[in-house]
Design a binder for these strands. Structure first.
Length: 295
DNA sequence: AATGGGACCTGCGCGC
DNA sequence: TGCGCGCAGGTCCCAT
């Protein structure tokens, strides 16, 4: 489930490998992932265009083309972009993309002789070819990029909301790019209980949260993202950040910090992983919070 | 405004 | 061994 660090990694990988290359041919194996325009138009308008620039906004990947249009890719849960050497014989190519177990939904044949596959097991992913990515409804509703956010603004945003902090971090209209994995990892490192109301956070918490958002996302990008489930890099290799995970997917195991047991609860229908001892709730923090208030 | 649920999908792991 | 079920989560959409 690519989140900001994974999409940023894909962006960086693609910049090094496909920038400046021409899309020679587009093979659509499952038209479902093409949301805009009609698949035949999508194919026709892409063929012959080259890739000028690659951008990211939140979890959305944006490829700027030589005709001024944009190809946007949303990976949702199981989307992948994987580069491979094109089989030389056309017959072989067809065999490689034959229906069956194959999860390749769209193939972009490039002028370099390489082939870029959009794979998506669950067909939630979305490809669009549009005139202006900034006009997408999804883009217009996005909250700020974590790296563009000042602490003063973040503090303000938090205090305005009484929602539980973990679902709030997942809310892309609040802040963009954070998903279920990094929300858990960030809150653990900031020692904040996922069920705390955003408004209840004192200055120390707000600052820890702000810093850990930057630190965790930066470190995850540096390590090429987290390969849990389906995510792979453009090369097909795994990202390397999952070995730094402290809580995600570790329910019932011992906390690396305090040896207590990691818990899993549901919040908004989604799994939340945390250490109750390292991330104590409001009641067990009353005296600490009182001290903080007096300062 | 905030929250909860269902829909979209498919593979996997569980219990029986 | 095999079947059916629930679960996984990003986003949209609807209801309350």
């Amino acid at each position: 489930m690519p989140e900001l660090p994974e999409v940023e990694t894909i962006k960086n990988d693609l910049c090094k490998t496909v920038c400046g290359k021409k899309i020679v041919r587009v093979l659509i194996h499952n038209p479902k992932v093409i949301r805009q325009p009609a698949p035949a138009v999508f194919k026709k308008s892409l063929e012959g265009r080259s890739i000028k620039r690659i951008l990211r906004r939140g979890k959305l990947l944006i490829l700027e083309l030589s005709n001024g249009k944009f190809l946007t890719v949303h990976f949702k849960m199981t989307g992948q972009l994987v580069l491979r050497q094109s089989p030389s014989a056309p017959k072989k190519l067809l065999a490689a993309v034959a229906p069956g177990k194959n999860i390749c939904r769209v193939t972009f044949c490039l002028s370099s002789g390489m082939t870029l596959d959009f794979n998506d097991q669950r067909l939630f992913g979305e490809l669009r070819l549009i005139d202006d990515w900034k006009k997408l409804k999804f883009i217009q509703s996005l909250g700020p990029e974590p790296f563009d956010l000042t602490f003063a603004d973040f503090k303000d945003m938090l205090f305005k909301r009484k929602t539980e902090i973990k679902p709030l971090l997942l809310d892309q209209t609040f802040i963009s790019g954070i998903g279920n994995i990094y929300a858990a990892e960030i809150l653990f490192r900031a020692k904040i209980n996922p069920q705390s109301s955003a408004r209840s956070l004192v200055n120390k918490d707000q600052l820890a949260l702000y810093k850990e958002i930057q630190k965790v996302l930066t470190s995850a990008i540096k390590h090429g993202g987290s390969s849990v489930d389906d995510y792979v890099r453009v090369s097909g290799e795994n990202g390397d950040y999952a070995r730094f995970h402290q809580v995600y997917g570790r329910q019932g195991k011992h906390c690396f910090a305090c040896a207590g047991l990691i818990q899993r609860i549901a919040q908004g229908g989604r799994g939340t992983y945390f250490c109750p001892r390292c991330q104590p709730g409001y009641l067990s923090r009353l005296s600490e919070l009182e001290k903080e208030r007096k300062k």
